[in-house]
Every structure is written in structure tokens, then in C-alpha cells.
């Protein structure tokens, strides 16, 4: 079992629906977000190329945040999802400093918080909130070990990249390009 997400940068329009859906679903405190949209512009006017990416925790297979955590609060569950156990977390900030994607933040209640791939929904067989609401259907979620899952199928068909693979984290968000 290896959960992963594919993000179609050709279909994403940058509407931020995924961000709002996540904040609502996960009760993210006001002023914080677990996912965000990056707009990358290449070239000079009028020869511009635009890429839109819906980004979040990469649920890295070689997760530096899990490695650095002194209490084991950051851990990897079945399916490769990286989670934080709130009552094991001392809020030292080591995981926040260790994440090359800056995907974590200190929750106002003290513990460290981040995207969970909506683990509570995935357990019930549902898709993460961001995937569910995306109006252009540019997010794909599923099990990479299952050759017929949505995400496996699309990754077989399309060219993709991951973000800063040189950081050595083996990220599990695949951006279709």
C-alpha cells in the first residue's frame, strides 16, 4: 500500500478550492493552511509559460520530519501517510525545520500540524477533501501499489515531475506536466 497524489498542472486553474476545502474539513485555524497554490511563471512577456500547482505535504517515503522527531510523534502509518500524534508532540519545531517544502506549521494549541491526506476520510474509503472538491478534477489520489488505481493509471499515461527530489526525501506528490 502506497498512497500518493497526482496533480495535473495543465488542468489546475488555481482557484484555491482545495485550500478552502481542507481548511473546512480539517478545522484548520484561521490564518493557517495545509495546502496552497503555487503559480510559476517562466519567460518574459509576451512569451510566458504558466504552471499552477496545488501543493501540500509530500508524504515523503524518506521523510526527514519523521527522522528528526525526538519523540516519535511524527510517524508513518500504513500506506505511507505521514501523521503527527498530537499528544506525543512537544512542539520543538525540529520537523518544521527539517521539511524542505515548509509543509508543517505550529498549531496555536502547541503541537505541530500538517496535511494528513485526510486520513480520517481515506480510512473510510473516501478521497481527501481537496481531491473531492476540485472543480477541474485535476487531483488524483490512490494507491500506487494498485496498478488500476486512478493515480497509477494517470502516472502511466503522463509525464510527471516531483518537487526538489535533490533534497533526497522521495516525495509522493506527482505533478503532471
Amino acid at each position: 500500500m502506497r498512497y500518493a497524489m497526482a496533480i495535473d498542472t495543465k488542468k489546475c486553474v488555481g482557484c484555491s478550492d482545495c485550500v478552502v476545502a481542507c481548511q473546512t474539513e480539517n478545522n484548520v485555524p484561521i490564518g493557517y493552511c495545509r495546502d496552497w497554490i503555487v503559480e510559476e511563471t517562466n519567460g518574459t512577456y509576451p512569451q510566458l509559460e504558466l504552471e499552477l500547482r496545488s501543493e501540500r505535504c509530500n508524504h515523503c517515503a524518506n521523510a526527514p520530519c519523521v527522522r528528526c522527531c525526538p519523540t516519535g510523534a511524527s510517524h508513518i502509518v500504513d500506506g505511507g501517510i505521514v501523521l503527527v500524534t498530537h499528544n506525543d508532540c512537544i512542539g520543538c519545531g525540529a520537523c518544521i525545520a527539517s521539511c524542505p517544502y515548509d509543509a508543517r506549521y505550529p498549531h496555536p494549541d502547541g503541537y505541530v500540524d500538517k496535511c494528513t491526506f485526510c486520513f480520517h476520510r481515506v480510512q473510510k474509503g473516501q478521497k481527501p477533501a481537496c481531491v473531492e472538491v476540485c472543480p477541474t478534477k485535476c487531483l488524483y489520489f490512490g494507491d500506487l501499489d494498485d496498478a488500476n488505481s486512478e493515480v497509477s493509471v494517470i502516472l502511466k499515461k503522463r509525464k510527471f515531475k516531483t518537487l526538489i527530489p535533490e533534497a533526497g526525501t522521495d516525495p509522493q506528490l506527482y505533478f503532471l506536466i
Binding site: 490564518g31 493552511c33 511563471t41
Partner: peptide, 13 residues
């Protein structure tokens, strides 16, 4: 040029 257009401004990050 890369911009976070959804306005990420997580405190301390």
C-alpha cells in the same frame, strides 16, 4: 518566478 497565490502565510514558517 514562483508565487504562492492562495496566500500562504503560516506563522513562524
Amino acid at each position: 518566478e514562483e508565487l504562492i497565490i492562495s496566500g500562504r502565510m503560516n506563522p513562524y514558517v
